[in-house]
Every structure is written in structure tokens, then in C-alpha cells.
């Protein structure tokens, strides 16, 4: 079940990042909201997650989104948060 949630996170994060890179703002924002929702569920179950790092990354996502810096949002989602998901969180559930 936890792995399913991580998988959902990965789907939304990839969809959001792709849409941001294509300039499809509304599509991207919708997927970003879905990602944040599913990410919150993963965080609630994960143990030993570096919440400081997670919070810092999410804060940077919001700041970049607010200034319409969409490629930076995509980079954080796809390369920084996604890597956190695959390396750190998944390890916690195994």
C-alpha cells in the first residue's frame, strides 16, 4: 500500500514536471496539487524522513511557482523531490 502511494506520487510528479516544461500551466498546477496530496500521505507513513529537507524543497517549489519560474519547479520536482522519493522514502518502507 505504501509503495502504491509512492508510485502515485511519482506519476503526479512526472506529469506536473512535464506539463511545466511544456508551458501547460493549468495542467501542471492540477498535477502539482495531486502530487502534494499524495506526498502528504506518504510523509505521514514514512519514518526517518528528513522533514527539513522536504519542507525546504516544497517551499522552493511554491516560491518558484509564484514567480512563474516553471522550469525550476519542474527541476525540483523531477530531480530533487523524485530522487528523494526513490532513494530515501522507498528505503524506509522496505
Amino acid at each position: 500500500m505504501c509503495e502504491d502511494r509512492v508510485a502515485s506520487c511519482n506519476i503526479f510528479v512526472t506529469a506536473a514536471a512535464t506539463a511545466f516544461r511544456l508551458g501547460m500551466e493549468a495542467d501542471a498546477s492540477e498535477n502539482l496539487v495531486s502530487f502534494v496530496d499524495s506526498f502528504a500521505a506518504v510523509l505521514q507513513e514514512g519514518k526517518g524522513i528528513d522533514m527539513q529537507l522536504v519542507n525546504a524543497l516544497l517551499a522552493e517549489v511554491l516560491a518558484a511557482q509564484a514567480r512563474k519560474d516553471y522550469l525550476r519547479v519542474a527541476d525540483i520536482l523531477e530531480y530533487e523531490i523524485a530522487s528523494l522519493l526513490s532513494h530515501k522514502i522507498v528505503k524506509e518502507f522496505k
Binding site: 512535464t18 516544461r21 511544456l22 514567480r67 512563474k68 519560474d69 522550469l71 525550476r72 519542474a74 527541476d75 523531477e78 530531480y79
Partner: peptide, 20 residues
């Protein structure tokens, strides 16, 4: 306040955009 291209893989990013 805006990044011009991906700081990680701009070529892959361009391939995504080109797919349109």
C-alpha cells in the same frame, strides 16, 4: 526570476517540448 532552461537535463527537456 526565471530559469531559461533545465539545470539538470536541458536536452531531454527540449525533446519533451519538441514532441509537440
Amino acid at each position: 526570476g526565471i530559469h531559461m532552461s533545465s539545470g539538470y537535463d536541458p536536452v531531454r527537456e527540449a525533446e519533451l517540448q519538441a514532441a509537440l
